[in-house]
Write a protein that binds this DNA or RNA. Sequence first.
DNA 1: CTCAGCCTTTCACCCAGTGAAAGCTCCGGT
DNA 2: ACCGGAGCTTTCACTGGGTGAAAGGCTGAG
Lengths: 251, 251
Amino acid sequence: MRAEPGRSVTSKVLALLDAFSPATPALTLSELARRTGLPLSTVYRRAAELVAWGALERGDDGRYRIGLRLWEVGSLAPRGLGLRELALPVMEDLYEVTHENVQLAVRQDLELVFIERIAGRHAVPVLTRVGGRFALHATGVGLVLLAHAPAEVQEQVLAAPLERYTELTITDPGRLRRCLAEVRRVGYAVSDRQVTMDALSVAAPIRVPEGVVAAISLVVAHDRADPVALAPLVQAAGRVVSRALNSSHQG
Amino acid sequence: MRAEPGRSVTSKVLALLDAFSPATPALTLSELARRTGLPLSTVYRRAAELVAWGALERGDDGRYRIGLRLWEVGSLAPRGLGLRELALPVMEDLYEVTHENVQLAVRQDLELVFIERIAGRHAVPVLTRVGGRFALHATGVGLVLLAHAPAEVQEQVLAAPLERYTELTITDPGRLRRCLAEVRRVGYAVSDRQVTMDALSVAAPIRVPEGVVAAISLVVAHDRADPVALAPLVQAAGRVVSRALNSSHQG
DNA sequence: CTCAGCCTTTCACCCAGTGAAAGCTCCGGT
DNA sequence: ACCGGAGCTTTCACTGGGTGAAAGGCTGAG
């Protein structure tokens, strides 16, 4: 048969990678075809090439999974492992002082991506996953990243419906706008039970000369927390990472 | 001009990703073209598509870098972050007991890839990088992974020249073969100054029913070390991770 | 000013990629 | 054993997405 007016080959390859998610890390050939909307034979050939390179791996069960080679390449992302390497020692210090959850995130488009997490054994359990995404308007890190994002990004987030996670989540654009102004003024953000009813987070920005590139936060049980006491700790950690970032950039 | 008999589009896309390495995490368009051997215009178009998707990012300096989107997808690799999530708590325990470097690695073809590392502040500095590769015949984790690799893999490694890192590196195939047998017999590996003259590592396997999928190790200063005393600790950690792996597989 | 280096766009050509369909393999049911 | 179904692999004639040389921009150095 003749080739229908189609998408570019590259977009098909990337669509295959897109099909994988934390909820579905292993897919059969037919599932891949269904998710991408591509013919089975096309998926078969593209997937075979990706397996040969190592971007995908094929298990004994015949399912495709993301391959280690892709993890290797992905680990070269400056905002991924690069940032993590600099921030991890600081995060460990923060953990030793508080024994609470410590998180590191960056903004990607209109969401945030968690880069690293130290999960305190005896701290409140967090549902986030390293490599996972989340909305910007609820978490502490999200509020910090949004407050220092370009005006255009802020407007886009404020224009869209703000998902409600708990009864305390800010869903009113006007209130969110005032909250962001306050975050910029005081230099840190507090998200009190705005994601789950048992947790509170305090977040501070990580800066380079061009602006805020990441945020670091403590997530604690809401009834055990004194945000005002924690804020200086988190801010100090943010400043230490900022300094490390700037010197690594220049040097 | 007419299209020359060329490589597949997918292979060109993957060649672009291959061009990036820890030593060269940021490349200009011309550098990419030089490294891949592809014409400038081809690289330009493929790179533009990758940027649009987020696999690459383009800095203010015009250079291309690995994008956060690729890091996100890569983080779904079961042998990458998946393994890491299970092993990290155990690695932290091992660190708390010893305050030495703790490493986690898997085998990829004829090399090993470091999945995670806890770098002890006051421990001997290690030169490895998370996401980095290394030969199988020198490090503790490498010896464990090689000792339990398929016979075919072992033969390929033994057939190739064994690179020498220090005067104690095993470069004789016969000696390496006997060393691997010993590793299998005792259930752990010791690499004494076989990578650098100041460090010694003790490594133990992480098993699933199908075989050994990863290795965990302690790296300590060689003059402060008692391998025989450390081995049970590392082996115990390996067993704990093995158990976690197996239960997560089934459940 | 010119030159050199690098990035971007154009354009006519054509081969890598396409997708329906046939073939294959492995199950589980009868 | 036989059949039917589900999923994977391969074939084949056709074609549009990809190609790369070359021209056009854009900087910054000399």
